[in-house]
Design a binder for these strands. Structure first.
Length: 476
RNA sequence: CGGGACGUAGCGCAGCCUGGUAGCGCGCCUCGUUCGGGACGAGGAGGUCGGAGGUUCAAAUCCUCUCGUCCCGACCA
């Protein structure tokens, strides 16, 4: 018998190909005509909408409001913060012609919006009574990337960028940390991604920030992925863009700012962490479809099974589930099982003649593949409980993996071995110098992912000098 | 941006070396039979061979350039 449909490449055989196959086969995204551009297809976008919904709720709950700023940024604006331009210059795309006429000033397509937003903030911030300003925008940005991969690194991508202004340095720092924790909570609670948080080393810091905080995830292949960052901008941008306000003592002072972002890259992280040889595995809270009902019928009882399946669908939908019923008559149940597993639907509900007879349904969970028979009557409760269990189990599995792949190295030799053979996060004290950091990167391809918040001193195995522990990994 | 590989139907590929009317599998459409882990039969649609030049009576095939994709390195959410 010939294989009826294309098989997904095994994750273990060729992870890179697996990743690309999966995105195509699960209809998450499709390549665009310009390098690094992609269409996010409805199913992929639905996942993004779930992330948006969760995060947006958390932003609003902490007093932030959404707004929208221009896509085009005049060159002169971008140039105001020296480090900032320098950091982004190599990846800017420029608009130089409008209506067939050369523009007086080139316009950059935003790679991030600090500069244009600061220009508005200069006018919006006049008094301490205007502060804090807590604004977020959901938008697309463009960075002229040389090497691109769907979701993980695309030229154009979707994200949210928060931009806040505060009266004091402490407030700004607190805000940056607060948002980092919001990201962390969203990763743990909604995405089942057990990210670690910490501080970026100066070389990995956002261009123009005084401190960058990060959420770092560990992918299935042992490489790290920067999943979200939150920046304490200090007064750097305020000074560059001349944002000032009169404080309570009637003195004109510069405010302190933050910015923080999470992008569609996160979807790539979800795929890499949870996916397996059968395909995607979406945590229930993020799944566009929490459960799919697959009716199993034979010629003679098709009508009856169909009717039961539709009734169950209505009932579950009525109970608030994101549910789908697969009434397609062209494919066999087996084909449907594979298809929905590929798409990562957390629970499959099988309903056939035998089940109807016994007043039951079959629940099959995507995370473990386990089957259970539950009474038709108590369906909504059973499903709710199972989804919660899957959500928990997925986080648990990912956490176990992360823990098992987070190691301490006593010597530089040991460090190299772990990075080479096992990968994962490797913890060693770092003397704080750029030279040591660069040497490690040069020799092992590992970079400092972050410095843990809990400060810990030790002897740097590379230089022999004392320093603070840092978490290293090869990164995406 | 360096080093390598590859662009032929929606997807995976053959054909290219040795130029001569573009093929296979899956998918897609129609009809019928099927349906508890990727069903089967019979019909059918679909390609300016990534693009531009060149060589030739003739180019998917040979040459040059260009764009794109993938893998490995340097830069980045």
């Amino acid at each position: 018998m010939v294989e009826a449909t294309e098989k997904l490449t095994k994750k273990s055989e060729d992870p890179s190909r697996w990743y690309l196959d999966l995105i195509r086969m699960a209809k998450l995204a499709d390549y665009g005509p310009v390098r690094g551009t992609f269409a996010i297809r409805p199913y992929g976008f639905a996942i993004w909408e779930r992330i948006q919904c969760d995060l947006d709720g958390r932003f609003k709950a902490t007093g932030h409001q959404n707004a929208y700023f221009p896509l085009l940024i005049p060159e002169s604006y971008l140039k105001k913060e020296a480090e900032h331009v320098e950091g982004f210059d190599p990846e800017l795309a420029w608009v130089t012609i409008g209506g067939r006429e050369e523009l007086e000033e080139p316009l950059a397509i935003r790679p991030t919006s600090e500069s244009i937003i600061c220009d508005f903030y200069r006018n919006w911030v006049q008094s301490y009574r205007d502060l804090p300003i807590l604004i977020n925008q959901w938008c697309n940005v463009l960075r002229w990337e040389k090497v691109t991969r769907p979701f993980l690194r695309t030229a154009e991508f979707l994200w949210q960028e928060g931009h806040t202004v505060h009266a004091t340095a402490e407030e700004a720092r607190e805000e940056a940390l607060k948002m980092l924790n919001i990201y962390r909570d969203c990763f743990y609670e909604a995405m089942a991604l057990p990210v670690l948080t910490g501080i970026k080393s100066p070389s990995e810091r956002f261009a123009g920030a005084v401190e960058t905080y990060t959420c770092e995830g560990l992918m299935g292949d042992g490489r790290a992925l920067q999943a979200a960052t939150s920046h304490d901008l200090g007064q750097n941008f305020a000074r560059a863009f001349d944002i000032t306000f009169l404080d309570e003592r009637q003195e004109r002072v510069y405010p302190y700012q933050t910015s923080w972002g999470l992008s569609t890259r996160t979807i790539g992280g979800l795929i890499l962490v949870h996916g397996d040889d059968r395909g995607l595995k979406i945590p229930p809270k993020l799944a566009p479809v929490e459960a799919v009902i697959v009716p199993i019928w034979r010629g003679k009882n098709k009508a009856e099974v169909r009717k039961e399946a539709e009734a169950l669908y209505s009932e579950l939908k009525g109970s608030g589930f994101r549910v789908e019923v697969d009434l397609d008559e062209e494919h066999s149940p087996g084909w449907k099982f594979n298809e929905h597993e590929l798409r990562g639907v957390p629970v499959r509900v099988e309903l056939g003649p035998k089940d109807i007879e016994k007043g039951q349904v079959v629940l099959v969970r995507r995370d473990t593949g386990e089957k259970e028979f539950v009474g038709r009557r108590g369906m909504p409760e059973s499903l709710r409980a199972l989804l919660a269990e899957i959500q928990e189990n997925m986080l648990h599995q990912a956490t176990e993996f992360r823990n098992a792949n987070t190691r301490r190295a006593e010597t530089y030799q040991k460090f190299k071995e772990i990075i080479e053979e096992k990968r994962g996060f490797v913890i060693i004290p770092w003397d704080g110098t750029e030279e040591t950091e660069a040497r490690i990167k040069e020799e092992t391809k590992a970079t400092i992912r972050f410095l843990p918040f809990e400060r810990e001193e030790g002897k740097d195995p590379v230089s022999g000098r004392m320093g603070r522990t840092a978490v290293f990994a090869r990164a995406y």
